[in-house]
């Protein structure tokens, strides 16, 4: 198996509007893939299409060489994918532990083991397990969100702009969370606004423009690419 996730020539959109025009996204087992691009380039759309939240009009999605095009999110969770939405990604009135339990709703038997695993990655959550998730700080809330997606022991974790609207300090925390998750050889696919930091930890980077792959390369190579730097990484170099 070369790819954990292999999405080819995706076409998708909302209603009349087509946003993805045949883009390719891949994740190798245990690696980090990052999708970057300007606003409206189709980053989050690609994510949603892969995770079955949006109808895939053309193209295919394979997970561990199995065709999963058009599968429901529930089915994908059962197969070993976890998804963390950009906003509203915790249950605010549920306690931290209950949030995590909901992550293993499809397989109650995994709850105990999942809780142990998540608490070992994020020990702070164990201390706060009785607290309502809505009362946590931004960074801790992201831990809960990621933890919830990790409960079913996924081989691929998908994160939609995990650092959107958080302070620079919390942003650092979140990248740490992602690296920590990746340590346990979980593949990561994420969409990021902060292209520089994201590409720095990426094994593979995808630069999207108008729903198509503009560049596809290793994170390092993309960071070094002057074209990419000028268009997508902002001024300071």
């Amino acid at each position: 198996m070369k790819y954990l996730l292999e999405a080819r020539s995706l076409v998708a959109g909302y209603g009349e509007l087509t946003i993805l025009n045949g883009c390719d996204i891949t994740v190798e087992p245990g690696s980090i893939s990052v999708i970057v691009g300007a606003n409206g380039a189709g980053k989050s759309t690609a994510m949603k299409a892969v995770f079955g939240l949006l109808e895939v009009r053309q193209g295919s999605v394979k997970f561990e060489d199995q065709d999963v095009t058009g599968c429901t999110p529930q089915r994908l969770v059962e197969l070993g994918m976890g998804y963390v939405p950009q906003v509203a990604n915790v249950f605010p009135s549920l306690s931290v532990e209950e949030n995590l339990e909901m992550g293993a709703y499809l397989a109650a038997s995994l709850t105990e083991e999942g809780l142990d695993r998540v608490y070992s990655i994020f020990p702070i959550l164990k201390d706060k397990r009785k607290q309502a998730a809505g009362q946590l700080s931004g960074g801790q809330r992201q831990m809960v969100a990621v933890g919830r997606a990790m409960m079913m022991k996924p081989r691929l974790l998908m994160l939609d702009e995990p650092t959107a609207g958080v302070s620079p300090k919390v942003m650092g925390d979140i990248f740490e969370i992602i690296l920590k998750v990746n340590e346990s050889s979980v593949g990561v696919l994420m969409v990021e606004q902060n292209a520089r930091q994201a590409l720095a930890i990426a094994d593979t980077g995808f630069v999207l423009q108008t729903g198509q792959n503009l560049y596809t390369d290793t994170g390092e190579a993309l960071l070094a690419n002057p074209e990419v730097a000028r268009s997508f990484l902002g001024g300071k170099h």
């Binding site: 059962e78 998804y83 509203a88 909901m102 992550g103 709703y105």
Partner: peptide
């Protein structure tokens, strides 16, 4: 929405 994604 999150409940659906979680498989509830």
């Amino acid at each position: 929405d999150l409940a659906r994604i979680s498989g509830i």
